[in-house]
Design a protein around this nucleic acid. Sequence first.
DNA 1: GCAGATCGTCAACCTAGTTGACCATTGAGT
DNA 2: ACTCAATGGTCAACTAGGTTGACGATCTGC
Lengths: 154, 154
Amino acid sequence: MAGHELPLLLLGGFRQLIDEMHRRLAERGHPDLRPAIGFAVQAISHGATTASDLGRATGVSKQAASKTVDQLLSMGYVETVPDERDARRKALRLTARGVDLVTLSGAVLDDLRAEWVAVAGESAVGTLETTLRLLAGREGVRTDTAGWLVAESG
Amino acid sequence: MAGHELPLLLLGGFRQLIDEMHRRLAERGHPDLRPAIGFAVQAISHGATTASDLGRATGVSKQAASKTVDQLLSMGYVETVPDERDARRKALRLTARGVDLVTLSGAVLDDLRAEWVAVAGESAVGTLETTLRLLAGREGVRTDTAGWLVAESG
DNA sequence: GCAGATCGTCAACCTAGTTGACCATTGAGT
DNA sequence: ACTCAATGGTCAACTAGGTTGACGATCTGC
């Protein structure tokens, strides 16, 4: 098997998953999503508590993360609460809508995985996951991807 | 297995492959590459003969493709030759350097695949490929990804 | 109490797309 | 032969999402 197929297949799989997820989320009350939004909300639900923090979690500058936070605020996915212990910080908290997005996203991805299993079989999908975790999960998966595709890599 | 891991694993695998490929290509005389450049050169070597054509092949507007062609020209990867049959067209042709890039990329990706096989085994990598081809290759893999990650999807 | 780190923000800039308009050229149909 | 729609390339204005650098305000270790 020629190696040049590998990246295209991985990218194709990723795209298909994300495109379909967004299609379904749009149907369920979350239109106008982009991967960057999803990654950010995910990072916040996993513990990123400030814009700077989000920047570190997603691999972008705090200034860029701050712009993303502005979007999340205007889209109603997060809200800020002043930190009583540190007046510099604006703590981020998911709104009910933000929590709904995280919950729905997880459910949709579970569905999509189940559909892959229905087509390819549990063992094939399981092997795919195990293999990628072994090969690509070595240093954890970073989600600062929008910029990465565009900027120089390395 | 939770579905939310799947896209991250696929993206992580893609990133790792492309990052490492660019690192090695930089060592071998092709620095300053970005995924968009590689995709474009690949598309041209696979038959895209004009900027408009390249745009169609990579899923972007002809104007955007034209900007990419400008880069490829200035980086010395392609050259244009006037089309004698159609005075509107500027036919694209890979230079020796462009051909070298395509050849090297293929070799590097073959190496990387072999390294994955060494770590995970031929059957695991083969299953990964077969599975993704089945699931994600249904409508062919598009490479207009830089813009896609950023713009709305669907 | 001071020095240095950190949080948020402003400003200028870069890159890679987009749409719309336009001209030159081609080719199909009458 | 002529018109007219389609196509190739280009210009201009705009958008999105990043970057770096600078800065004031605040916190923390010593």
